[in-house]
């Protein structure tokens, strides 16, 4: 099989609060709602995904942080209960997911051939991290599309942001090659928050939205700047600003998912569609889509 392609990429952040606010049957914790604007943003993203009809979802999560190389889920079916170590009061989710092992192996192999240390995770008792699960639930709660789960190697933190993100770009290149080689119709999910400054105490009622707002005005301004550039299709400019954005907004994109996704997509200079933005314990979260299957829209039209 060949001629696979990436049909779209989504910036798909993973605050567990969004699952908690939705009250799906898989999650033990119950809420009175909350974070509606972000949850409605995901509803729009779900509709897009339905239209795109991918064979596979690939997700890069900062909450599976690995020290030695880049790891890929490599067990056909994984299930269990994922409890968020930071917000166990909100997220205790019974998950079951199917892995596209063939594609994961191809990604791993392509990454190795490009000089990245890469490993397949073959332990059937492995507990999938809450970042991966939250992003996947929010984008596709039916869990009927196989996935490839990719760890976030700690290189941007252990080495330098520049060196680390260069590795993520190589990983993205490897991912694209694997998708093309295996003939998959793939959607990429970058599981990242933007500004990551957050409050240090949780409200007594977590979903009390009267307590929810950006933790940092400067961080909010950075988020709007980045989103606006993305909306105008000025991708190169975003990536030239990314190191400064990461430093000044403590942006979670440092962990590499956004760079991985855009490198895989070839850094398209097309307008991203903002499905919605909102804060979670003060952090900035945008749900955005880059539809590579659509006819190229003139960049100026979105400006």
């Amino acid at each position: 099989m060949s001629n696979g392609k990436i049909v779209a990429g989504f910036l798909a952040p993973h605050p567990p609060h969004l699952v908690y606010g939705e009250n799906p049957p898989q999650n033990e914790a119950r809420s009175q709602g909350g974070w509606e604007q972000l949850r409605w943003a995901y509803e729009r993203a779900r509709a897009s995904l339905e239209r795109l009809k991918p064979d596979v979802l690939l997700v890069h999560s900062p909450h599976w942080m690995t020290q030695l190389g880049h790891h890929f889920l490599g067990v056909p079916t994984l299930k269990g209960k994922s409890v968020d170590p930071i917000f166990p009061n909100l997220f205790r989710y019974n998950f079951a997911l199917d892995v596209d092992v063939e594609l994961a192996e191809a990604c791993c192999s392509e990454a190795r051939s490009r000089g990245l240390v890469s490993k397949m995770m073959r332990n059937p008792d492995f507990r999938v991290d809450y970042g991966t699960i939250t992003t996947l639930h929010m984008i596709r709660p039916q869990w009927d599309i196989p996935v490839v789960g990719i760890s976030a190697n700690n290189s941007p933190y252990y080495l330098s942001t520049k060196e680390g993100l260069e590795e993520m770009a190589v990983l993205g290149d490897a991912t694209r090659a694997a998708i093309e080689r295996t003939g998959r119709r793939a959607v990429l999910l970058a599981s990242n928050t933007l500004c990551h400054w957050h409050f240090h105490e949780e409200p007594e009622i977590p979903e009390d939205m009267s307590r929810e707002h950006p933790q940092s005005y400067a961080g909010y301004q950075w988020d709007m700047r980045i989103i606006e550039l993305f909306r105008k299709g000025r991708t190169k400019e975003v990536f030239s600003l990314l190191p400064q954005f990461i430093d000044e907004a403590f942006a979670e994109v440092k962990s590499g998912a956004l760079t991985w996704m855009f490198a895989a997509m070839g850094y398209p200079e097309i307008p991203g569609q903002l499905h919605g933005y909102g804060t979670v314990i003060g952090t900035g979260n945008a749900v955005m889509e880059w539809d590579l299957s659509a006819p190229a829209a003139p960049v100026a039209a979105a400006a």
Binding site: M65, L68, I86, F87, D125, F126, D129, S151, E201, E202
Partner: peptide, 22 residues
């Protein structure tokens, strides 16, 4: 690792099977 508040394990008996992520 905790980032909000100081957490303490308060369940009387905690059992399970853990797999190290690395």
């Amino acid at each position: 690792i905790a980032v909000l508040d100081q957490l303490w394990q308060s369940r009387a008996r905690v059992t399970g099977l853990h797999v190290d992520e690395n």
